[in-house]
Write a protein that binds this DNA or RNA. Structure first.
Lengths: 345, 345
DNA sequence: TGGCGGCCCGTAAACGTTTACGGTACTATG
DNA sequence: CATAGTACCGTAAACGTTTACGGGCCGCCA
């Protein structure tokens, strides 16, 4: 029960054969293989992770690095849980396990990752919350660890990435709002240096200009990507000299705080201002329902895993054409929060 | 750069001494220790995890088991993120790392855990989402893995646990509502067999009886612990023959769906019905603000880690009196959602 | 001078696997 | 019958660490 040695002794077979049988290698009689598998099952034997990893040089685990402390990720309640589920659906087919590597908010993410890498903890990594410039990517590339990022970065280490299509969101939102007569459209961005802020605002600016409008720099609202941030955005917006008649919220958690901030001033989304945001578990339960951009999180997880495995020699053959770098589409789900239109005066 | 061997060669010292120096063992000259640490730092050497674990029999990681797919836990990302942060604050002091072990929604949690244990993945475990009866606990006890559960279970493996004080929440809520004249008070519970449902409902029933009231069995609403579940609760409540004038929501995510369900029927929390719930990132941004029970998640994480370490021989001395089993207090935060009172007719 | 103890260091075994290599028994083929 | 080939299995080395053990050197004391 202790190790493969005991299992071998119990079966009166050499440990080499037992190992081969368990790992599905050839050169082992089908009858013996059956016996071995049976005995392993009944005795509850599972190969020790450390021994195997030491010998093979691979651990069989894929790490998903994230940082504890909410303000950092800017994702809402269930985002990661759903993505994980998709990732695992793919990994399970290869007997790979997924673990979340949790970097404390007190530790530097780069240092943390350096430790993870040097210790040989995982065979591959998924990196979330990438920064606009991110030394972690260079580190991983230097150590030749297969990895993929959820989010782009200016730092290019040649790795694959998947990012939400904030460009598309910008285009679609602006077009929709302009068509409804809005001339003063506000946009938001996270307070920190995640790449999405730059991408999104820039693209909104472009889209507006293409419609002959100009993005008022005082109508770019920066906030933490959480409920309190949304509240702050509402306060800031209401204090504007020229009040925007529409706004696009780029972070999913801010909507509810934003609603609250408006309502305290008697301003109602959909009636007095048009609001477009991101889908979240509660966006359809707000009043009015939030017009928002949705995406399939589980599918996103599947795509992440596939693209990662495609870069790992041992698994690449199963994923011949998993695109390396791509934007993940988001789809507009109409609610009533953007019902407010402006008449051409 | 490859291993301790190269580091030793580079320093012209034996690998034994290098290892001792790095691990802070005695029997090594302070000057050599300095040299070793310096060289390790500059060459970026970090001990290989597999080799060390294989030899030492311990991995230096603590696992937090959770299940992907949200409906299972009823807790959102932010809940765990905050708890993690607390756990890590403690673990960091002992150079222990925290990883989240993610059990796929497609795999049986018991099987998953059996794998984790047999592979010797972690030195200690924190188990969340414990069921009313939970074979996992027996499994862990059998293998003598130190662990603690977040949540109680009828299955008693002698392990320490910490659970939210739903009893206290029941007592306080009922007392508060009864005092405000309510005679028909509804309660909720999750749809599955987590222990909290039984505990909470039973205690509410007791509390009501102590006030001379009786819990109407048709006023116990069972739902998934998410937004949709809350919506469902509202629909069910509104369809009651005798409509409750107050309700206590035991899951944190349901409030917003519940609000929505009410508002579609023109019923307003705080004005037409009293609502008490659980704190969540958005409970203070609802209109009206939710009167709710809050708890310090980070502190909870700290307590979990301390109680776990207290059961591990190698660390126990640092935590002489970390209570083994205890209820985690929750504090009532007054909003306006329970402002509705019933006049004694 | 001899012995003892303290400090520091090197040697080698051990942890549990996987896998290259070689060996045996049997079958087929000439 | 000799040889080659096949199917299966055992042996042992290797992975990178930690640590028990022993030994050299030095200083101190009798």
């Amino acid at each position: 029960m202790k190790g493969i040695r005991d299992l071998a002794r119990h079966l009166d077979i050499s440990i080499g054969t037992v190992s081969r049988a368990l790992n599905g290698k050839p050169d082992v009689n089908e009858e013996t293989r059956r016996r071995v598998l049976e005995a392993a099952e009944s005795l509850g034997y599972v190969a020790n992770q450390s021994g195997r990893a030491l010998r093979k040089g691979s651990t069989g685990v894929i790490g998903f690095m994230m940082q504890t402390g909410r303000e950092i990720t800017g994702q809402g309640d269930t985002f990661f849980m759903s993505v994980f589920d998709g990732v695992q659906a793919v990994l399970a087919r290869h007997k790979l396990d997924l673990v979340a590597l949790l970097c404390s908010s007190e530790e530097d993410p780069h240092d943390y990752l350096a430790r993870v890498v040097a210790r040989g903890f995982a065979d591959g990594l998924i990196i979330s919350a990438t920064r606009r410039r991110d030394r972690r990517l260079e580190l991983l590339a230097k150590h030749k660890i297969p990895f993929i990022t959820l989010g782009r970065s200016l730092t290019d280490a040649g790795q694959p990435w998947i990012d939400l299509d904030f460009e598309g969101m910008a285009e679609t939102s602006i077009a929709r709002l302009v068509e409804r007569g809005h001339r003063h459209i506000a946009v938001t961005r996270p307070h920190d240096d995640t790449n999405l802020g730059y991408v999104f605002v820039d693209r909104c600016r472009d889209a507006l200009e293409r419609h002959g409008l100009k993005l008022d720099e005082s109508h770019i609202f920066r906030s933490t990507p959480n409920e309190a941030g949304g509240y702050q955005i509402a306060r800031d917006l209401l204090a504007c000299e020229v009040r925007p008649t529409a706004i696009v919220l780029v972070n999913e958690a801010v909507a509810i705080g934003f609603y609250r901030g408006l309502s305290e001033a008697g301003v109602k989304p959909g009636r007095d201002i048009a609001v477009i945001g991101r889908q979240s578990p509660h966006s359809q339960f707000l009043s009015p329902r939030l017009t928002c951009f949705s995406l399939s999180l589980r599918e996103l997880g599947i795509a992440l895993a596939q693209s990662l495995l495609a870069t790992m020699p041992a698994y690449a053959e199963s994923y011949p054409d998993s695109a390396g770098r791509r934007l993940w589409p988001m789809e507009l789900v109409a609610g009533e929060s953007d019902a407010f239109t402006v008449s051409p005066d």
